[in-house]
Design a protein around this nucleic acid. Structure first.
Lengths: 186, 186, 186, 186
DNA sequence: TATGAATGAGCGTTCATTCAT
DNA sequence: CATGAATGAACGCTCATTCAT
């Protein structure tokens, strides 16, 4: 792992543990084992680091989903597959997922280039629209579905984190919860 | 409104607008029209102010619900009434609701006395348990239901804020969303 | 002397001794016997301190001149009187004068509000214009006269500082130099 | 132009534009199109660069004067010729001239080896002494004449820079100013 | 000769908090 | 009760300089 990646990893851990404000760049640098200036060599500002870390995580999550969801299936299977993949990734990469929430609900989210945001949102919304068109979920405002699903995932995530279930139990809760959500959407 | 209340109101507005970190106590004092020291006369620390503000809001919300929900009804009506009341209050007091989210997802939440938390949680959980016992909602882990409902409300709130709907349209969305949630839980 | 004035006085000494860059605000504060934050309580930024110090000195110099030059004299006497007063003040307040040069030739000069600059310049230029109209000095571009005189004063100042003359000798040099300048302008 | 000279040229431009403090070596290197370390390969420190640049400019100015002033003339013509040559060079190489002023009035001037200073000063002073001996200028302290002349040139330079005159008008102002100075000295 | 990643001391500035009035 | 001047630790960030390649 090169220094840049060590910095990202360390920043992730500390931001998740203590929040943005309570994590001085000096602490990140020290725990990453690099000089303070090195951090600023790679990231112009603390904000830059925060945003870069978000994009880094997003790209890793995107790669995971791409890899784990079979595209050549019927709309319903595909949609459910995506949902499960996101949850699985979130459970296997808890800090990463929590960070995306931290980031999204912070003022730093506003620093993302609008195109970046649009692009990312567009993809998700298109999938929802396809599912609606295929008649596998209710015809509702896409943004509404998107928002509700997002908060569901977060709620489920929160619940799973709070209760340290076994892998099996965890899978069961996810499946149940998925069925419930599906009952609501379909 | 006495100085103490002006401070709370001003703090609420600024915290919601800019977050905890980006809101210096000096700014709160200035915008509240009191001296810097006055704020610390009423609240020993910034943390104290933040927590006090949370409890102040919670008490106001509790009063609203108490006032707007008729207790002598069947379990289902009562349960749904509560849910609606919370949403109504949230939409009418957006800053206040947003603040409770801000607070809950911040490290400051840990400063609440555990008894306080327990008590507040207990009440909600008991209601859910009653609904389960009365057979009006599915038999699931109470904490699961509680968490899912909470995030649902937050998702709905987020959606409503994002889209500045008319009062009527808003009511419609709430009702629809409520039905969906009910379809999921019942 | 209140803290604000102590800060100004200390800043003056250090800026003159070491220049703007080589004088950290922390050093000013320490040598002024106040906390670091106190400096920023009175002056929002280091730049603010630098500009404020300039205006403070300018006002003191203006007061001195006002006090020492008799206004009800013929144009020539009045004009010469001003020149002498500036030089006298400069010799008696060497750090102050040097600071005005330091400031004027620094990028910080650009921070002065244009009106402030105009006003200050206007006064000097009007006097030169009057002298020209009265026929006591050559008819040249006012700005030219102003600039040449300014650099003359600075040259003379530099020379006097370099050679630590007695008060009497100093007066003589000033008088001689004044005569030379007059020979040039008249 | 080799890398060393590119560095010098770039440094000159940036120092003149922004001052010593506001010009990081990294910026010089970047704008010069060389690596950060390369600058320090040629100049041990930033100070070294600053001083070297000064000497480089001085040597170029010396060469110009040597080339443009005929030595075999009477004292007065020679003296005036020198004066004009300096002014001409200054107007044609504004950045270079401004840099010499920047440097001379900075703490870095103290880094010049005293012999270097003496030597350079000696030459100028000798010429003034010769002019005095030849009776073409007033018998005054050589240092006094030197200082006054220097500030006169700087004042004239400042005036010419401020007003962006045509070449012809500029020549006229120089001539006039020269006459005035001469009237004062002779 | 040339590079540029890495360093870390030091800067300007912020802000929660105290306390004499 | 109320003030606001004063504090100083801690922060984000800069930049001259080094050194392995």
């Amino acid at each position: 792992m090169d220094k840049q990646e060590i910095i990202l990893t360390t920043a992730l851990r500390l931001f998740v543990q203590n929040g943005f404000h309570a994590t001085p760049t000096s602490k990140i640098a020290k725990e990453a084992g690099v000089a303070n200036g090195t951090l600023f060599h790679y990231y112009k500002t603390k904000e830059d680091l925060i945003v870069s870390l978000y994009l880094y995580i997003k790209s890793k999550m995107g790669a995971y989903i791409e890899e784990h969801v079979k595209p050549d299936t019927d709309a319903k299977t595909y949609f459910k597959g995506q949902f499960k993949a996101v949850l699985e990734w979130s459970m296997e990469n808890r800090d990463e997922f929590y960070y995306t929430q931290l980031f999204t609900n912070s003022p730093f989210a506003a620093l993302l280039s609008p195109e970046e945001v649009k692009k990312s949102l567009k993809k998700s919304c298109d999938q929802i629209q396809e599912a609606i068109d295929a008649g596998v979920i209710k015809a509702r405002d896409v943004d509404f579905i998107y928002t509700i699903m997002g908060s569901h995932i977060f709620g489920l995530y929160t619940y799973l984190i709070k209760n340290n279930f076994s892998k099996a139990k965890q899978q069961q809760v996810i499946q149940e919860s998925l069925d419930m959500l599906w009952g609501m959407l379909a």
